[in-house]
């Protein structure tokens, strides 16, 4: 019981931190900070409230593989968009010799 209430207190504290920090101008880091705090909260909920710590290996495997798969998914999609040179569907800029959509990127 004590553990549950401590966790709840920690969750509210993290919520407050995240909410407060959103008023501080952190520039590009603000999203990263907010997501890191969110990750801490999620870990608390999953391990303590959902009792993953006490579950059997098979349950941990299920949770772990879901997390791994989501990570792969988001990473490889992001890797594409982050390394695309010009967005392929932007209207082509007036350019005398239009060679390929990826003029700035390493070619095929």
């Amino acid at each position: 019981m004590r553990r549950l209430l401590l966790t709840a207190a920690a969750l509210v504290a993290l919520w407050g931190a995240s909410f407060g920090l959103s008023y501080v101008e952190l520039g590009r880091a603000s999203l990263a900070v907010a997501l890191i705090i969110a990750a801490f909260k999620a870990v608390l909920v999953v391990l303590v409230f959902m009792e993953l710590l006490h579950e059997k290996t098979s349950v941990k495997l299920a949770a772990g593989s879901a997390l791994l798969t989501v990570t792969i998914f988001v990473t490889l999609v992001a890797a594409d968009v982050a390394t695309r040179a010009p967005a392929p569907l932007d209207p082509p800029e007036p350019h005398p010799t239009h060679v390929s959509p990826g003029t700035g990127a390493p070619g095929w």
Partner: peptide, 10 residues
């Protein structure tokens, strides 16, 4: 239209 980097990785 995916990036060359991602295409290479895939």
């Amino acid at each position: 239209g995916i990036s060359a980097v991602d295409a290479g990785a895939f």
